[in-house]
Structures are given as C-alpha cells and as structure tokens.
C-alpha cells in the first residue's frame, strides 16, 4: 500500500517493499502481544522451597549450640544484627560505642555494606571485561602478542580461582586494589577465553568484504570484527556478572573490614546462620538486579542481531 504513494520503481519492486514492511509490522505486533506471566508451577516451587526451609529448620533444630538451619522468623529478626556493621553517623550511633542496636542503624549497616560490595563488584567487573576482551582481541590481532601471552593466559585460566585468594591477600594485603584485582582477574580470564573463541567464529568473508571496501586492518577490526563477535560475548558477559559477585564476596571474606563478604566472615565467627542466610538473600536480590540490568543493556546493544 505504502509503496503506491511513491511512484518510483516497478510495481513488483514496490510490492516487495510493501510485503517486507508488513513482515516487520507483524513481528512488532507479535512482540507486543507477548505478556509475561508467572507460571503456576513457578509459584508452587517457590512455596515448596519456603516450606522445605521452614520444615528443615524445625526438624534440625538447635543441635550443636547454633541453628544449623535458621527459621524464617530468625532470618527476619537477624536484620537488627546489621546495626553492628554501621560505623556510626546519620543519626545512628555505632554499637561498638555501647549504643543499642536500632532498625535505622541496621538499615544503614546493611545499606553501607551492600553498597560497598556492589561498587567493588561493578568496578572489578568493568576492569575485568575491558582487560579480558582487550587481551583476547590483542592476541587475535598480533602474532607477537599471541606468542607472548597465549601460554601465560591459558595457565592463569587453569588456576583454581579460590586457591588464588591467599596469594592476592599476600600481594595486596587488605587493600581495595587487591579486591578489585581479584574480581577483575576472575572476570577477565573468563572473558579472555570467550573472546578468542568468538573472534575465531567471525566469518572470514566479513574481513574480506571490509578490506575490499578500503577499510584498514585496524578499522576492520574495530568496526567489523568486534561488532560481529559481540553477540557471542553476550553469554560470557552475563555469566561474568554472577562470577564477579562471587569473587567480590570471596575477596571480602578474607581481609576486608567492610562489605557483605566481611559480614559473612563475622557471621561465620559467631556461628550466626541467620545472618548468613539474610546476607545470602540480599546478595541474591542485588546479583539478580545487576544481572537483569546487564541483560537489558546487552539486549539493547545487540538489538540488530538476527
């Protein structure tokens, strides 16, 4: 229809235009019709988990001086413990000075520790992504880099990550730098391997086509090979979000004075399984939020992909 007000081109060409417009519209309306519904079985499995949790808390009870499985009410009640992780200020004094723990103090304690861990996670993730992908491209680009870096990089990939924590602790002490380096290492090494694989899968004809249009090797790399490989990095970039949270908690567990990993470490010391559970839930929520944000961003960045 639309093509008729055009006039240019043959009728058949116009009809091709029209039909593909309709195709696009069909696709659009189909997407609009898609409504997210929670599956009844998902509700059922959620309720089953809650029930199993509460049941195991009752059955296992307080057997060894602490609760192996805290009940749901214990976890809710343990929120106040977070007041102990607030250094004071903003209308809530530190419990270390003898002040009574308050809900406001607990809110600040939870908020502060969560914020610190999240910022570390995001910073470490970003550094790791840039380094890992950059190194992957460098190795695919330069024969010298390939010769120099392939072996050490693969060696680093083979190292068990958790076993590296003491090494990082010894190297960087309890510094911020050590935590960020550790997260970046965990993320970077994962993305490095995925990047090399993704570049290897970029069809040769893209390279040939770009070069025959006059693009320099560098331009071809930046404007063609990188975007062509990008959708394949998507899975790795999402996986690395969960990875970076784990790495952040692990790094904080050993030798940080603030952060959710530090809270977990103290909770272990006091055998507070309720605080561990609450912290775990907080991590799940924030990890899910960052995952969804990353997923949305990546979906937008690859909206062109077929």
């Amino acid at each position: 229809m639309r093509s008729q007000d055009h006039g240019s081109g043959s009728n058949t060409r116009s009809s091709e235009r029209g039909s593909s417009r309709n195709d696009a519209q069909d696709g659009g309306s189909a997407a609009n019709k898609r409504v997210r519904r929670i599956h009844p079985l998902a509700v059922l499995s959620f309720l089953a988990i809650i029930a199993a949790w509460q049941a195991s808390s009752v059955i296992l009870g307080e057997t060894v001086g602490y609760k192996r499985v805290p009940g749901i009410e214990d976890v809710v009640r343990s929120f106040i413990e977070y007041a102990g992780y607030w250094q004071g200020g903003l209308g809530a004094e530190s419990t270390r000075t003898g002040a009574e723990p308050t809900n406001w103090g607990a809110t600040l304690g939870l908020g502060h520790n969560t914020l610190v861990t999240m910022l570390r996670t995001i910073a470490g993730y970003t550094i790791g992504v840039v380094t890992g992908i950059g190194l992957g491209f460098l190795i695919a680009w330069s024969k010298t880099a390939r010769g120099l870096l392939t072996f050490p990089a693969h060696l680093a990939r083979m190292m068990p990550l958790l076993a590296m924590i003491p090494l990082f602790a010894l190297w960087f002490g309890d510094s911020q730098f050590g935590v960020l380096t550790f997260i970046a290492f965990a993320v970077g090494i994962l993305l490095f391997a995925i990047t090399i694989n993704a570049i290897g899968n970029v069809p040769l004809h893209y390279w040939q086509y770009a070069r025959s249009l006059g693009a320099s090797p560098l331009r071809t790399y930046a404007r063609v090979v990188f975007p062509a490989a990008f959708p394949q990095l998507r899975g790795g970039l999402l996986l690395a979000v969960a990875f970076s949270w784990s790495a952040a908690l692990a790094a904080e567990f050993l030798g940080q004075q603030v952060g959710l990993g530090h809270v977990l470490q103290s909770a272990l010391y006091y055998a507070s399984t309720d605080v561990v559970a609450l912290t775990g839930l907080v991590v799940i929520v924030f990890a899910a939020v960052t995952y969804l944000a990353a997923n949305k961003t990546l979906a937008w960045l690859t909206r062109w992909a077929e």
């Binding site: 893209y206 040939q208 086509y209 975007p227 062509a228 062109w304 992909a305």
Partner: peptide, 10 residues
C-alpha cells in the same frame, strides 16, 4: 559475495 555480507549491526 554469494554469502550475505551485510554488516548486521549497521
């Protein structure tokens, strides 16, 4: 080319 070489991201 015989194969589709359009840059899908452009």
């Amino acid at each position: 080319f015989q194969r589709d070489t359009l840059f899908l991201w452009r």
